[in-house]
Write a protein that binds this DNA or RNA. Structure first.
Lengths: 113, 113
DNA sequence: TCATTAAGTATACTTTAGGATACAGGTATC
DNA sequence: GATACCTGTATCCTAAAGTATACTTAATGA
């Protein structure tokens, strides 16, 4: 295997890993919702059109396992849960920004083709 | 709906569109392979570990429909097909670069947690 | 005539993602 | 005791993504 091939396979792995962590229809969207000030389960559900509670529940676990959000139990009257972004999660901005920009441009490109 | 909410929904849509076009396990990887000099179907299959020809075939069609690659029939003896990136496709670099970087860093983060 | 090569297609699967709906469990209020 | 609030879970289902393996078509040259 040439050096170029080795580098190519490393790139593949890194990109597929990123896709595993933040890929799919909802993950970045959920992060943005929390970033926008929604901390509680039902607020997040309400803020994202068409998401269901089952999907949100699963995705929140995935994001927590990957150190992107943290879950705090607040022991008041009906027990509240607060989701917050970790410091580390802010690095997602390096991806979300470009993705938003690219998506907007692509819509124009395709609709006017 | 507040202005902030409208902007949020636009962001969601743009990101979900991007995910639709370049999301999944293979699409960016295929683009990188062509970028690396592989033009022919079997070369691309060979360059990407674990991809199958059926999957590659489907993904190439998707990428062509989204104006990211072009398919040229070369009418020689066993008919050859050449895939090349479109000019427009180069804009993917704005996404692939950050994704590669983020993925590499994330691997470190998770393995050392 | 037979094998070879390139670029896929066909068929039949398995796995993962996502969706619809119902409701549980604890606590506080009426 | 009944009811409502909150954060989910349970169950069941559909659709999309991905996999495995064999086959097709057309031309060519041994």
């Amino acid at each position: 295997m040439t050096e170029q091939e080795i580098k190519f396979k490393e790139k593949i792995k890194a990109i597929q890993d990123t896709m595993y962590v933040i890929g799919g229809k909802w993950k970045i969207v959920i992060i943005l919702s929390i970033y926008n000030g929604n901390k509680r389960f039902n607020d997040i559900v309400a803020s994202i059109p068409k998401i269901t509670n089952r999907v949100l529940s699963k995705e929140l676990k995935h994001l927590e396992e990957n150190l992107l959000i943290s879950r705090k139990v607040i022991d008041e009257y009906p027990v509240r849960i607060e989701y917050t972004l970790t410091e580390y999660c802010l690095s997602i901005d390096e991806l979300a920004g470009p993705m938003e920009k690219w998506g907007k441009n692509h819509m124009k490109k395709i609709s006017g083709k």
